[in-house]
C-alpha cells in the first residue's frame, strides 16, 4: 500500500498494486452533514480523471463525487448504499466508495499528501 492522497474536490485515494480505493474525506462528510443517499458507478465502467463517478446526498442537497484518476471500476461498496450513514461513521476506511483499476499511476502525482490537503482545507474552508 502506498500513501493516501487527496484531490481538491475532497476525494481520497489509496493505491494498492494496480488498483486504488477511492472515498470522500472526513472534511467532506463534515461539510455535507448526514448522508442519506449514495449512488455508485457500475462495475466495468471506464472513467477519466475528474469525471463524475458517484453521487452523495445529504438531507439538504445532492453532490457529485469525482474519480481522482482514470481507470475502470472494479468494485463498489454496497454497505454504504444500504446504509448511507456508514459514510459519516468512517469516511476514510469502511466508508470507501469504489475500487478502480488505475490506467496511469502518474496521475496520482498531481494529488495532495495528507499534510498538504489539511493545509488546503484550512485555506479553503468551504
Amino acid at each position: 500500500m502506498s500513501e493516501k492522497k487527496y484531490s481538491k474536490k475532497h476525494e481520497w485515494i489509496m493505491l494498492d498494486g494496480e488498483s486504488a480505493t477511492v472515498g470522500i474525506s472526513k472534511h467532506a462528510t463534515e461539510m455535507l452533514g448526514d448522508i442519506v443517499f449514495v449512488e455508485l458507478p457500475e462495475k466495468g465502467k471506464s472513467l477519466n480523471k475528474e469525471e463524475k463517478a458517484a453521487v452523495v446526498e445529504s438531507t439538504k442537497a445532492a453532490s457529485d463525487v469525482y474519480t481522482p484518476v482514470s481507470g475502470e471500476i472494479m468494485e463498489t461498496n454496497q454497505p454504504i448504499v444500504d446504509d448511507p450513514s456508514n459514510v459519516n461513521k468512517d469516511p476514510e476506511n469502511n466508508g470507501w466508495f469504489f475500487k478502480i483499476k488505475v490506467k496511469d499511476k502518474s496521475e496520482l502525482d498531481s494529488l495532495m499528501s495528507q499534510p498538504d490537503y489539511e493545509k488546503f482545507v484550512k485555506e479553503n474552508p468551504n
Partner: peptide, 12 residues
C-alpha cells in the same frame, strides 16, 4: 442556523 452540532437527522 441551518443545523447545530448534532446534525439534521438527529435534530429531526
Amino acid at each position: 442556523p441551518i443545523q447545530y452540532k448534532d446534525g439534521i437527522v438527529k435534530e429531526h
